[in-house]
């Protein structure tokens, strides 16, 4: 196979840790991998609004309510940054959205779990956004420029998400017996799904080696998961809580927390669409899109009218 100037240039950029930009030549596989990953990332931000929006009207104080609204709005913004990044690769927003609605592009399985109590708002901020931060910090160094820039913007905002979440949990931990029980129950339900967010073990992750070679991924699933476990377990203990893992122990030799076995059957079942809320999440997303059709049509008609009037006076 003959190597073209484009291929040589691409490899030089990757080797030199420089960013690949939209107008550069890139291998088809690189482009496809990125479109898939960034689109799924964007869909996750958008679907991720649902579990938290569920609690906006029932936030316990006005401050918590304003905070939750701001956080949900951030998620919409993160979706936008990511869709924009994906669009630089030659796919349209409409097409990505259609693929999501048709179930042909997925979003993170974490959002197929229900938010049953107010404590879940805290746990999501702390555990789910916490996992997001670990992942996204690594992705700031990803080789595709627009994706890396989106990550930098998103990471600046995620810290607020994690801290407001932990602050909800701190309040509960200093509350009544009932509130502390609600807190522990929430951690018990979210701990394992949060660990699963990092994806299959490296040994079972088919896409990892190529993605690492292209520097799309800079750190493997298991490395990120371990980093996350080490920083999160002491934070659970600080709340006076435990994580639901009888095999959890601190390994003095390695300095790392070691965990029991992850239930991968549950993971794959949710990825395949059989989670508790897969159908409900997409149904709601499609409904929101359809319900908003008149707003988009009105905005388009108004813009058209303004242009026509401008042409008349010109």
């Amino acid at each position: 196979m003959q190597t073209t100037a484009g291929e040589i240039r691409f490899q030089e950029l990757i080797d030199a840790d420089e960013k690949v930009e939209p107008r550069d030549w890139m291998p088809d596989g690189y482009r496809k991998t990125l479109i898939r990953q960034i689109a799924q990332h964007a869909h996750s931000e958008v679907i991720g609004m649902q579990p938290e929006a569920n609690w906006i009207t029932r936030a316990p104080t006005l401050q918590r309510k304003m905070t939750l609204i701001a956080k949900v709005q951030d998620e919409a913004g993160h979706g936008l940054y990511l869709y924009s990044a994906a669009e630089t690769l030659g796919i349209s927003r409409d097409e990505m959205q259609q693929l999501l609605h048709d179930g042909k592009q997925k979003y993170s399985s974490i959002f197929n779990y229900p938010t049953l109590s107010w404590a879940d708002m805290g746990t999501i901020g702390w555990l789910v956004d916490g996992a997001a931060i670990v992942n996204q910090i690594a992705l700031q160094r990803t080789s595709y420029g627009p994706y890396a820039r989106a990550m930098v913007k998103i990471c600046k905002e995620e810290s607020f998400h994690a801290r407001q979440g932990y602050s909800i949990l701190l309040a509960l931990s200093r509350g009544t017996e009932e509130q502390r029980a609600m807190l522990q129950d929430s951690i018990d339900r979210w701990w394992w799904p949060a660990l699963m967010m990092f994806g299959p073990h490296d040994s079972d992750s088919a896409n990892t080696p190529q993605s690492i070679e292209w520097k799309i991924k800079r750190v493997t699933n298991d490395e990120l998961r371990q980093l996350y476990i080490d920083q999160t377990v002491p934070q659970a203990h600080y709340l006076g809580c435990t994580v639901p893992d009888p095999d959890l122990r601190f390994d003095v030799d390695t300095g790392h927390w070691s965990i029991g076995l992850i239930d991968w059957d549950e993971f794959w079942d949710t990825v395949k669409g059989n989670g508790r809320l897969n159908r409900e999440r997409i149904t709601h997303k499609v409904k929101a899109w359809d319900d908003g059709a008149w707003v988009r049509e009105a905005a388009t008609a108004y813009a058209h009218k303004q242009r026509t009037e401008l042409e008349k006076t010109a």
Binding site: Q40, H41, E45, S108, A132, N135, Q136
Partner: peptide
């Protein structure tokens, strides 16, 4: 998060 969904 990467919110990276693996292939089934």
């Amino acid at each position: 998060m990467t919110y990276e969904v693996p292939d089934v």
